[in-house]
Design a protein around this nucleic acid. Structure first.
Lengths: 257, 257
DNA sequence: ATATGCATGTCGCAC
DNA sequence: GTGCGACGTGCATAT
């Protein structure tokens, strides 16, 4: 790993130079010090002086962290432009977004520690058990929904949006499935009803609506009855393991060929 | 400001001791080094080795930041418990949540920099131009909606939720207003319709539904017509400035008394 | 604990 | 660029 540059209590002029250079060279910067922050854009905020951790990433993301809380108190997403200036009393960092009119303005009255890093991170990231994975699992094993169920189309476009899974049951009824990776609330049912209404206008065949999710919210179960929708319990982790197995199968198949 | 403890390339045993102590004493810890991460809980993820910034806050929040991106690649919200262990080759940090079964497991193969901070942050934070502010502005100036509009109730409870603003127009029609601080989509209209349906069952008076938002989504504008709902453009910043003015008025009033 | 809706949500993807 | 839905969303609030 490349050695970081560490500056303890740099004066503001020096800090300005270092940060400017670091941003230009697309390094990662960590500033620890006492600052106040003003944000203005879609909304507006003010934050009085306090000791914080400020992170500037090489892609132009800005994070201002207080000593507590998971969320940054102020921030800018990636692709920001920075203007840094200083005098004897303070260091000012202004970050503006290229696309939207959003501005974060930081004034440091004290800098305790300034670190410049050149991080190398090629690590692969994989996330399992998403809603996408649940749909894939249904594709691989339509019987997860019920025996004899066949898929006609995925992500079928209908006017107000996309039907997650569109298929036909063994009796020939059309089936519209809304997939949720966590507890399905009324919004899931509303979404499904929307699709059922639209599709029912396009066909005279009988239609079934199914919510496939790990669980159903209590209030949603009442709606279920009134709208005559069905619920199919579907565990995202089970879905993830099905995909995992399938991957292995493919590999063995490939090896066998 | 209290001086931070800075350790360059500490050995794993030392790092373990320091982090353990820091967590126990509710300090803020920053670890910069090469690590891999496994997450498991609602979903599951793996992240290969790479150089990252790991932040442990005194409230038990955990953030793992790659050199790019606004969001942490892995994380835990506040109130986590940490288990730290080490051997000659690696430092392991496991964080589990108290309430939910969620676990993040970090393995460091190299530690470049370990910093322990005792940040003091009493700065006041204020956010303006929220949806709440828009409602307040309507309260202060009902004419923002239209001339002659009078408010009956705020956040009126009806069965499926709360009506943002409930009032009466100069002709005596009941008015139900749904406020949105950004572009109102179909979900806003669905919400409003829900309230209109419920209220229409409770009264025989004529009812008007109004979406008050800075803008209306295109698809939503079609729905607007079909449901015979009105749209009132309302800028959140204008609302914020109305509140600001009102504050000043109160101050002058106070001074005058 | 559960449910519901907001957020400077952010992000990705389709149009 | 805009629109729309997912997210390990987090978070506050009301029941």
């Amino acid at each position: 790993m490349e050695e970081p540059l560490i500056f303890k209590k740099p004066n503001f002029k020096l800090a300005e130079e270092i940060i400017n250079k670091a941003v230009a060279l697309k390094k990662t910067v960590i500033i620890i010090g006492k600052c106040k922050v003003n944000y203005s854009g879609r909304a507006k905020s003010t934050l009085g002086f306090g000791e914080r951790i400020v992170l500037i990433k090489k892609d132009g993301a800005l994070l201002i962290h207080r000593p507590i809380g998971y969320l940054p108190i102020n921030w800018q997403p990636s692709n920001c432009i920075f203007q840094i200036s200083s005098n004897n009393e303070e260091l000012k960092i202004k970050s503006v977004r290229k696309d939207v009119k959003e501005e974060v303005f930081i004034v440091f009255s004290e800098i305790l520690l300034l670190t410049v890093l050149n991080l190398k991170d090629e690590g692969e990231f994989n996330l399992y058990a998403s809603e996408e994975d649940m749909k894939k699992a249904i594709f691989l094993k339509p019987e997860l929904i019920e025996e004899g169920f066949k898929i006609i189309e995925f992500e079928k476009k209908v006017e107000p949006g996309f039907i997650d899974v569109y298929g036909i049951d063994k009796k020939g009824n059309l089936v519209i499935i809304e997939v949720k990776r966590k507890i399905a609330g009324k919004e899931a049912i509303m979404q499904l009803m929307k699709y059922i209404n639209v599709v029912s206008k396009l066909t005279s065949r009988s239609l079934r609506g199914i919510i496939a999710a790990p669980k159903l919210a209590k209030k949603a179960s009442k709606l279920l009855e009134t709208f005559n929708i069905e619920f199919k319990s579907l565990n995202p982790k089970v879905c993830a393991s099905i995909i995992e197995n399938e991957k292995n199968k493919k590999y063995s198949l490939k090896e066998w060929l």
